[in-house]
């Protein structure tokens, strides 16, 4: 399956993966910085309106960890950590992803490749379990609709 929205194309190459591609009016170096420098990550990954990202720590080296935390004024919290498996400056990072309160089974590996050539950004999410891939697709949508709270209702 393949869908495009604006400049973003999403495909599901197999039942474990989600592949996203997009072209930007930015260099590979700028895209790499946006995905690896905490001050920048915070500004575009802070989530839904009302949410902030009080913790964004990145130890950018193979074996290094990252830690992101989101918070809502009403007290909701969400955290994710992972380890960098591959770091090639201005080219590629591969990181694992583990949420504090896992909302999908198994692990996930995120590979982000940036390039000055089209497609400028290729993001490949590989889930251990096909079910996890599908939950991730659904909750991504829930995130758009009602914020992260909706994630919980999927398990009712």
């Amino acid at each position: 399956m393949k869908q495009t929205f604006g400049a973003t194309t999403v495909t599901t190459p197999n039942d474990h993966q989600i592949l996203m591609e997009r072209d930007f009016d930015l260099t590979a170096a700028q895209l790499f910085a946006a995905h690896t420098e905490p001050d920048l990550i915070r500004r575009w990954m802070s989530g839904m309106p009302g949410w902030s990202m009080p913790v964004c720590e990145v130890d950018l080296r193979v074996g290094g960890q990252y830690r992101w935390e989101w918070a809502h004024p009403e007290g909701h919290k969400m955290g994710v950590s992972g380890t960098f498996k591959e770091v090639v400056r201005n080219e590629r990072i591969v990181q694992t992803e583990a949420y504090d309160e896992p909302w999908y089974p198994g692990g996930c590996e995120v590979s982000i490749s940036v390039s000055d050539e089209s497609p400028n950004l290729v993001m490949l999410l590989t889930y251990e379990e096909p079910e996890a891939r599908d939950i991730s697709l659904k909750t991504g949508v829930a995130g758009v609709e009602d914020g992260y709270k909706r994630i919980e209702t999927l398990f009712d």
Binding site: F5, T9, L26, A34, L40, L121, L137, G140, V141
Partner: peptide, 25 residues
Amino acid sequence: ELANWLQDYAAMWEGRFQQLEAIMK
């Protein structure tokens, strides 16, 4: 239905990516 899920997912990321692009600009 499936196409809708995927499209909404693409829309969510497109929103983030637009923000990313604006910040870097």
